[in-house]
Computed example of a mutant assay.
Amino acid sequence: MPTSSRFARGPASPLTLRAAAVALAGLAGATGLAACGDADAGGSGGRTEVVASFYPVAWLAGRIGGGDVSVRTLTKPGAEPHDLELTARQVADVGKADYAVYVKGVQPAVDEAVEKHAKSKSLDAASVVKTLPPPTGGEEEEHEGDHEHADTNYDPHIWLDPSRMATIATALGDRLAKADAPHAAGYRDRAKAVATELSALDRQYRDGLKTCKRNTIVTAHAAFGYLAERYGLRQVPIAGVDPTSEPSPKRIAELSGQIKTAGATTVFTETLVSPKVAQTLAKEVGVKTAVLDPVEGVAEGSSDDYLTIMRKNLETLRPALECS
């Protein structure tokens, strides 16, 4: 990201020097996270190099690592992460990194690369939280050969529960502190701050969804099981774990009946995948559509981050569920 600045002539005061140091440290942290999406980026500049599988864990690594890490993600900005294929260079980057963070079950290629090249220096975020059974309601059982990530015995979409993300933040802070002992205090302090922010987000969701006339969310794919479980909602997914799977006419008919029975007002589309099926279903039943973001990726240049996207999701859910 090109930047420009003007420096005043003459000696700088200690206060000015301290302010400059803080600014540079912040820029270093931002640059590390900005490297997400380019696993072929340049060197880490002496910082701890962290490879992240896709956006939610890359966001955590950038916030917790700050200026002490260089974060690279294996999934390009704006790309749908579920069917990621790694290049030979990316596989090598997994092995060369000081640490890797991922969610096992989302991206089979990443799971394999970590297992072979970074097992002893990685955090599977799903291993530190209570997981839920695989989501039901999609049709992936009819397409077993197309959905390798359905082999896991749990729902991998853990990041859509802020309370679980807070637990992961604490665990990642501890792991990075052990991997880079000279900066241990910074990792743990930043992890605590991030966990506090996520706990506050959790409270916003609990308060915002406490009193609603409806509790059914019809989603583009089965990504919102943890959010539904945490806040007393019921998820009805059009597709299963894989958002690109096409529902059959039979499934569409089933969904139409479920929407009418539940009195749902909205079919939720999402970012990164085509909204056509959801829009067709909504039109057929006579309800609205709205975007509910599974936070699986953020478009390049976007000013949004995990926290702002999740807050927008809450603002989208409340009117759809007629919450007071």
Rank of each mutant, 00 (worst) to 15 (best):
P2Y: 01
Y102E: 08
T131L: 00
A39K: 05
A299T: 08
S5E: 15
G137A: 05
P133K: 03
H82M: 01
T170H: 03
A39E: 01
Y226P: 06
T265C: 01
R63F: 05
V273M: 07
Q107S: 02
V287N: 10
K210Y: 02
A126F: 11
R164E: 06
I309R: 09
R190G: 00
R230Y: 10
V51P: 02
L314P: 12
E197S: 13
L27S: 13
A290K: 04
T289H: 03
A118T: 12
V22W: 06
K283F: 03
M165E: 14
D111V: 03
P81V: 00
Q90N: 12
P81K: 01
E148D: 14
P11K: 12
P319N: 07
G257E: 08
G138T: 06
T266F: 08
T308Y: 04
A19V: 04
D40Q: 13
K178I: 06
G145V: 03
V110P: 03
G240L: 11
T131S: 00
V241K: 03
L317R: 01
F54K: 04
L160H: 06
R206N: 05
G145D: 14
V285R: 09
S5G: 14
A126S: 15
T265N: 14
A21W: 10
A166N: 07
S256F: 04
Y102G: 02
A100T: 05
G257L: 04
R311E: 15
T170Q: 12
G301E: 00
D189R: 14
